[in-house]
Design a protein around this nucleic acid. Structure first.
Lengths: 119, 119
DNA sequence: GGCTATCCCCTAGTTAGTCTAGGTATAGGC
DNA sequence: GCCTATACCTAGACTAACTAGGGGATAGCC
């Protein structure tokens, strides 16, 4: 939050959540931690972002939810990937690859600098 | 263009426009063509997206506009990069690199499947 | 002259998704 | 009891992209 604002999240979040669920059912809170662990904290997913996203995906039939018990014995809502979610995931992965490929073609050899010196 | 998932990630457009302007002053219409030529049409920038973006960037002091004549002799508004715009660009390039890097760490070895080609 | 296509700019309104900033509730440690 | 971590949720603000138009100027064709 705050410190760094990518504004790039829209679209990529769903993909990462779906990918996380390919590794088995998980509840929201653990999905967040899983993603953050994977990228060493480079991305921070707000709960206020994640839960609406999960509900959206459930409404679209990409995931299915059911209540269960978390490792710590608390009530938790577990999400599993549906076949449609799996299909959506692979489409998104393809789109992501095409999109980032296109952007880097546009950006050419423009090099990521340190943090901000001039080209 | 509708069908594609990542029409444009918020934030990536500004970066591409700023990058385009590092190659010299250009007017809006030619910026669009430049970007589309670069990515072989993989991205489509709508005018209704571009012009508001240019105005935003001008208001923020990243570009400066002035009226001039296009190659075809028409009136056109040319944009040039300001020092602040240049700085913004390199920050965005860095953010972009960090963000896409983080996403691919999360996605791991998940490979783009059928629709496109594979990595 | 009219017609069309291309060039070039613009905006209002809609939609979508993230962020802010709260709220609820339980379990465990002190 | 209090505090922290866990676990879920929502309303409202905000930003930016998209839709779907608009206008005018130029060049070429008939």
């Amino acid at each position: 939050m705050t410190s760094e604002r990518f504004d790039l999240l829209p679209g990529a979040l769903d993909m990462m959540v779906l990918k996380t669920l390919t590794e088995g059912a998980q509840h929201g809170y653990s999905i967040v931690r899983h993603i953050q662990r994977r990228c060493q904290g480079a991305l921070s997913i707000e709960e206020g972002t994640l839960y609406p996203a999960l509900h959206r995906m459930e409404a679209r039939g990409w995931v299915r939810a059911s209540w269960g018990q978390s490792d710590s014995g608390r009530k938790a809502k577990f999400y599993v990937l549906t076949p449609r979610g799996r299909k959506e995931l692979s489409q998104r992965v393809d789109s992501w690859a095409r999109f980032t490929g296109a952007v880097s073609q546009v950006m050419g050899d423009f090099e990521p600098t340190g943090a901000g010196q001039l080209a």
